[in-house]
Amino acid sequence: MLEIRNLHVAIEDGSKKILNGLNLTIRDGEVAAIMGPNGSGKSTLSYVIAGKDDYEVLDGEILLDGKNLLEMEPDARAAAGVFLAFQYPLEIPGVATMTFLKAALNAQRKGRGEDELTTPDFMKRVKAGAEKLGIPQDMLKRGLNVGFSGGEKKRMEILQMALLEPSIGILDETDSGLDIDALKIVSEGVNALRSAKRSFLVITHYQRLLNYIVPDTVHVMSKGQIVRTGGKELAFELEANGYADYVTNAAA
């Protein structure tokens, strides 16, 4: 379970406040969607959960299964089960995707006090995962994300999530830049990972993704706060009416 209480966050140098007393709870097995206008703080929220340095937490807490994430290093949070599929995945030149995946998986296992996976065991898992997501084998030999198309990068994020088996998967605008076929593949990849123990936070600007990854709850974010919460039908309402109401409301 992820619990976020009264979260206030500013940019590291204090020049701008982005999150203003945000509250959000995601139960085990729940798929929660956050929708909101550009600039409302969605990516910031995902970065703060994952532990990026650029932000200063002024107040509030974030608990994952009761553990205080804010006291943990980013790699420790990852080992504790936080996975963030980036809106803009980074390129790591010269480091073969396969090498990276293995290093990441073993680092997390080490962080949890588990043994390293044997190479054949690891290869089996990667190959099976890649196949499901339509990722060709030779892509795994290339530098991570180097020269990958937008869609390939997003698929690679989902492959990583599948391998790392997080307890909460945060998807930051995973739908952006995907054509409809890729969107379906990626959504199927995510749906296959849904389980009673694993929760998801799906961040999106558009309702379209939620046709494929059907959420249990939908939250509307504006000016660094959750301003409305509802079921999946809320997404349709937003699609029809836009965010204009929330932008003016929150500003008032």
């Binding site: 994952a50 980074l90 990276f100 680092a107 790392l164």
Partner: peptide, 23 residues
């Protein structure tokens, strides 16, 4: 890049070493 690697579970040293070794 470092944050990305750390989000995947690598420590800052492991991340730097990985990137440098690849290089």
């Amino acid at each position: 890049q470092l944050f990305y690697c750390r989000q995947r579970g690598l420590s800052a040293e492991e991340a730097t070493a990985l990137i440098v070794n690849g290089f």
